[in-house]
Design a protein around this nucleic acid. Structure first.
Length: 153
DNA sequence: GCCAACGTTGGC
DNA sequence: GCCAACGTTGGC
């Protein structure tokens, strides 16, 4: 089993929105970055654990936990001309973008702000703390997952 | 295949 | 809303 961190803008889709979805499950659509796409398509497996991270908001940081309940399949929004993430260059016979389904596990009582994450000396590999960490789907190594989880519980 | 221009991300 | 850092695009 592997560990991941997914970014989301809470004004668009928050941890509470996920908790309120039918079966507390939703597809993680709209990923339009190749590195993140490759994780979605190739690496993220059933049962993997996911930190949900709120970006571009008042309180930036890790807010909750989710679990992968469906492995990579094509993101239907890429073929929908009315969708925000429509990609006219992607063809149904060769989909360019992939997504996974995640299920809500919990919302942490105290979220872990980015500034706190950056202040933990042991957190060195997480792309979030690296220069220009703009990746929206990133792996978290087990050692760092454990450190972060200890701060959140 | 280079690289300048452009668009986007995301913390502050 | 600013702007630095990046990723993508497209002309050559």
């Amino acid at each position: 089993m592997a560990y991941w961190l997914f970014k989301t803008e809470p004004q668009a889709f928050s941890i509470d929105d996920l908790a309120n979805c039918p079966d507390q499950t939703d597809c993680w659509d709209g990923i339009r970055n190749y590195q993140a796409r490759n994780f979605m398509r190739d690496s993220i497996k059933l049962g993997d654990k996911v930190f949900i991270y709120h970006s571009s908001c008042d309180k930036v940081g890790i807010v909750g936990l989710a679990e992968v309940v469906k492995e990579g399949y094509h993101d239907h929004t890429q073929f929908d001309p009315d969708a925000k993430y429509y990609d006219p260059k992607s063809k149904p016979e060769a989909p360019r973008w992939f997504m996974v389904d995640v299920k809500f596990v919990k919302k942490f009582e105290n979220m872990l702000p980015l500034t706190d994450i950056k202040a933990i000396p042991e957190i060195t590999e997480l792309p979030l703390v690296k220069k220009g960490g703009r990746l929206s789907v990133m792996p978290v190594i087990e050692k760092e997952w454990d450190i972060l989880m200890a701060r959140l519980l």
